[in-house]
Design a protein around this nucleic acid. Sequence first.
DNA 1: TTTTAGCACTCTAACGGTTAGAGTGCTAAA
DNA 2: TTTAGCACTCTAACCGTTAGAGTGCTAAAA
Lengths: 340, 340
Amino acid sequence: MLNERNQKILCAVVQSYIEELAPVGSRAITKKYRLNLSPATVRNIMADLEDMGFLSQPHTSAGRIPTDKGYRAYVDCMCKENRCPGREFSNIFMERIEGARTDLNVLLSAFTARLSTLSHYIAFASPVSPDTSTLNRIQLYKYRGGQAVAVIVTNEGIIKTKIIDTDFGFSQKDFGRISDYLNSEFSGCSINEIRSRMIQQMSKEKMLYDILISKAMAVCKEALEFKQDDVFISGLPEFLGLPDFSDRAMEMAKAIEDKHLILKLLEELSSPDGIRVVIGSENPITEMQGLSVVVAPYRQGDRSLGSLGIIGPTRMNYSEAMLMIKAAAESLSSAITGGR
Amino acid sequence: MLNERNQKILCAVVQSYIEELAPVGSRAITKKYRLNLSPATVRNIMADLEDMGFLSQPHTSAGRIPTDKGYRAYVDCMCKENRCPGREFSNIFMERIEGARTDLNVLLSAFTARLSTLSHYIAFASPVSPDTSTLNRIQLYKYRGGQAVAVIVTNEGIIKTKIIDTDFGFSQKDFGRISDYLNSEFSGCSINEIRSRMIQQMSKEKMLYDILISKAMAVCKEALEFKQDDVFISGLPEFLGLPDFSDRAMEMAKAIEDKHLILKLLEELSSPDGIRVVIGSENPITEMQGLSVVVAPYRQGDRSLGSLGIIGPTRMNYSEAMLMIKAAAESLSSAITGGR
DNA sequence: TTTTAGCACTCTAACGGTTAGAGTGCTAAA
DNA sequence: TTTAGCACTCTAACCGTTAGAGTGCTAAAA
């Protein structure tokens, strides 16, 4: 589709635009990248590239700006060449892991925080869904009054806690017995599966009219009702300060703060393997066109648990972003998996 | 210091400025607030107010803008009159409480979220400090490998969890025994107190060279090491969109995102009783001058646990902000206390 | 003595015209 | 096929001007 020379020029334009954030002219290209071509030749080529839809002109006498199609060609071409491992980044994330072996959710929020400060864009990570996470152990204790504290630990390293109100005077021993029952019955099952089996069982038990059991069942059900974790997002404030969005800042903020949107985006983009790059108008979420997204899945062993990524302007530094995401996803995966 | 008429004009100017966010002229005042005075008279009074330092002029032929001193006079005057209970707001917060009796930290984050969407400013809440919170119960379980999960519940309704690495093969029973020991020994003590007593005890036990006990002690110490919770902050993105900060947005964001600063601010402002308003240059934190803060403590019974508040531009709507904070603090306190 | 009307003065923001500069497209020569 | 040259176009920046808002001052009215 593109001969080598045209591709070279296209990449030069994109590169330069990413760096300068201003329309690039033919003379600038010849100066910056020592191609043995005169501005006039470059002009001709740029006109061709514009005809083919890779570049566009804000107005007649301005330089060229890449279109989304232009970025796409640039990224694809880069992916082919750029097989450098980028170990520089992976160290940064590894470092973090040495510190504290903790709750997966704490890890996820630490990773997004670091990813956003490094990239200066927005970092996000999807939580592990209740379909994916499996029960390692559940435990109930008596708390003040009729209340109980429920603690659920999953095999992915997620810890969830909850305070449960009950109008029945269960003793600590009762709670212990309920916990034992739940553990023996449901250990290893996915949270959603447990929930539906519970509901099924409850409708059966209802027949018995045994107050103790039905109250206990109510406690169990309550203990297992956790709302899905929120998407982890970090770096919004700094991102809004970026020159790109001086005008549309508010609008962008609204779109990104809306965690439903991000979750939806992640679902649409979930690809079991490898990094994915979505550029501007390629984004399935209309509210987020004008932004680009780089995502990669994180894993426990070879089971994909969720994904983490970066959202930036279409003119983001793709190569750096991809290296970072790759390093982060690898570090995170090995941290999760490494916990035996 | 100010006669009644001058005060009235001052309040009118402030009010109008808060609403319009533009310098207010003498004619506007006479039109908007049906004082029986001509613009010329108002002009004279405004000139006096400027001499006294309550108002200022951006340039000769512009209207007046309140100084921080002007806002202060306005707020003080408002506090004297405005004894309306503002039940409208308290309902909004009460509603939230009906839903789920949960972890105090979840409550705090829910309250700040709601407070920020209502006020359109930044809402924040300080976490309960480890000096204040007292142990209700601690429990350890065996998790995969040599790891254990520690769960601490405090009497304030805070639940903390942690994964602990241990290189010794404790059984579930061992962890149970360790938990029992900790509960019997430290229940009711403040977290910081426990920590220091632990360290003391460890130096004693060291003499024994009993591996089991020293390993167990290490687990205990680890289980009690929690970093202070972060300040809860909500509403930054929307706040940055406010017209006030179109230029200084980044700068503001940095100052507010710095949680140390906010914690410091809260310490400086901690007043055991009632609402406090800090206006612009009154703020002890230099980075945050140009912003105003409204804070109130939240309580368990009559013990103050921390505070929550709003940060906004100096030209914020003080009366509304104060009503909101009051309602929020009351709702929150009763939610915490109500949990028997 | 206090308030008001009138007027001259000042400053800003907006408008329109001009200009320098950057970058283009086209044509003719290499 | 590439390049040099040139005319052309568009923008952003820079005035100078102007309308309007608001002031301060003075002198008259209450």
